[in-house]
Design a protein around this nucleic acid. Structure first.
Lengths: 213, 213
DNA sequence: GTGACACTACACCGTGCAGTGTAGTTAAGT
DNA sequence: ACTTAACTACACTGCACGGTGTAGTGTCAC
């Protein structure tokens, strides 16, 4: 009579090994994709026996799920940090706002997107989401929500003219970040300089469109 | 003494079957991904024996390559058509320009992107390009080139203020189309109405930033 | 009829891989 | 010393799939 514990992990185990396995899986999934990564390879990279991988995670899908979950969390908290650090409440001039926006976009692209883990992660999610419905839940608009909240505040203070803060946030993201991890496809490991230029130009256009007057 | 013909297709064959195989491969690759699609499944869907698939295309990779090639071509020509139909040379007012831009963006999203084949295609390319270096060549900036050429003309006629037409084209694409096939990830089969609204808003912002004065 | 050709049906090989079962080792707790 | 838990090493099952080889069938040209 087997007592089935429905918890995700089968073992309590040393958290250290869990992390090693998860890390190895992350690296390999992001680099080679889900299908092309074997559990044997993950085990080897984690310095752990294949059996242990199964003892911890049960099946390969669970491993992918855990990887995505963790990556999403760290992405969102990185963005949260960028918002807090840059989109502060003490701005008074449009010029101050400009440099705050530039700083914010740079911070995000460097800490999150630029690491190129971001695009790899998104690639992974969209490639596998058809087969892993649970992934859909993790898809989020949190980043845009955070930004739009700040825009709303700036709007109230007269720094921006934003009838629809959420839309403005979408536009800001499109102008400064989306082009960096371009929607038309290419991986683009753009040089630092050109990324900075793109951000400056994007902020420029954004302000031209959303500044009062 | 086997004479090796280095041509891509091993057979001349009935072009009809070639197309059937290619079409089947396209549907399956886009729906399920490269790795998850078996050659047997392609053959079955094309109503052809597996052996024939190999006689025509040699190996699975070649099939993928052909699919991407064909899809890219048809995508580009669809965009070309949208440009020709909408971004005409007879515009005189900013209001005329506005509706031309809206028409253009709608036409593109409907004929190319909206079919959702576009995002599936891009997903496929970026997911497999690591393993298929030949794909890189097919990655193009043609669409943006076409648009920027039109912007340059409008700039000369005083309808737009575009010191850097290519940049303006990037911004236009980002504002109107990229958000549709969003970079943040989700598949987004958005309703027609909301897509239209997004386009109108995007054009609005674009014009606010790029109109003279 | 004879040949050439395009194609199918089918068997087949090799391999890589998800997942399991198990015996044995190590180390800690008592 | 005894028990228990965490792991490893390793063998093994089952399957799916890429790719090939081949015998046979239909069809057209001459």
């Amino acid at each position: 009579m087997a007592m089935v514990e429905a918890g995700k992990g089968v073992r309590a185990g040393s958290a250290h090994k869990r992390a090693a396995i998860l890390g190895a899986a992350r690296e390999l999934f992001l680099a080679d994709g889900f299908e092309r990564t074997s559990v044997d390879a993950i085990a080897a990279r984690a310095g752990v026996s294949k059996r242990t991988v199964y003892d911890y995670y049960g099946e390969k899908r669970a491993l992918l799920l855990a990887v995505v979950e963790q990556a999403m969390d760290s992405l969102i908290s990185a963005i949260q940090r960028s918002v807090d650090d840059n989109l502060t409440d003490d701005l008074t001039s449009v010029e101050g706002l400009r440099s705050a926006l530039v700083g914010f976009a740079r911070s995000v692209t460097e800490s999150a997107l630029g690491s190129s883990d971001y695009s790899a992660l998104m690639r992974l999610v969209s490639a596998e989401s058809a087969n892993l419905p649970e992934l859909e839940e993790r898809v989020t608009t949190e980043p845009e929500d955070l930004v739009s909240e700040r825009f709303l505040r700036y709007g109230r203070r007269g720094l921006l003219e934003v009838p629809n803060p959420r839309l403005a946030a979408d536009h800001f993201v499109a102008l400064t970040m989306a082009s960096t991890a371009s929607a038309i496809g290419r991986p683009v490991a753009q040089s630092d300089a050109s990324t900075r230029q793109m951000i400056a130009d994007g902020v420029d256009v954004f302000l031209r469109a959303y500044t009062p007057r």
